[in-house]
């Protein structure tokens, strides 16, 4: 079991980073710091996805052109079947590429992440304008201080 953990130390580090972000979200009372923690957590999840898609000694998922590959590497390869289309290229498909699927998912998730971050920041700005503070306990004191205890803060 310990050997498996040592092989997979990538994941262990990613889990530590994730938990750091989670702790910031939980413990910090400041709304902007909370959002920073959320974004650290989010980026750590991206790291985990990309780590799963990594193939050792492989290339980034951009297809090599058969012509260039033949010039650089001696050895056998098979080009893609069928006649060459649009650009007149043939591609090498039997060398190792990293898995492109996690890349696609995370690529869009990053941009959606910044869009949702912008929404969160806009809410923070509005809260600041109305309450005059972005500390959680002060906001809840304003919200509940009068109603629950019968006294203003």
């Amino acid at each position: 079991m310990l050997g498996t953990v040592f092989d997979n130390y990538h994941y262990a580090v990613v889990i530590i980073l994730m938990m750091t972000g989670l702790y910031t979200v939980f413990a910090s009372g400041n709304l902007i710091k909370k959002l920073v923690g959320l974004s650290v957590f989010q980026t750590s999840v991206f790291l985990m996805y990309i780590t799963i898609g990594k193939v050792m000694d492989a290339q980034p998922p951009i297809l090599e052109k058969a012509k260039d590959y033949a010039l650089n590497v001696s050895g056998n390869y098979t080009a893609a079947a069928g006649e060459s289309g649009g650009g007149g290229y043939q591609f090498v498909t039997d060398i190792a590429y990293s898995n492109p699927l996690p890349h696609v998912l995370i690529l869009t998730a990053i941009v959606v992440g910044v869009a949702t971050l912008a929404i969160g920041l806009a809410l923070v700005v509005r809260i600041r304008e109305v309450y005059g503070t972005i500390e959680e306990d002060e906001i809840s004191a304003i919200d509940y201080g009068y109603n629950l205890e019968g006294t203003s803060r």
Binding site: V55, A58, A80, F91, N99, P100, L101
Partner: peptide, 28 residues
């Protein structure tokens, strides 16, 4: 690990099919 379940089926399928069907180098 290139043979893990995550790296075996649909992702690798995209690599093989992009060369045939879409014919652009950037699989992503």
């Amino acid at each position: 690990d290139g043979n893990s379940p995550a790296n075996s089926y649909v992702g690798m399928d995209y690599i093989a099919r992009t060369a045939d069907e879409i014919k652009i180098p950037n699989i992503v």
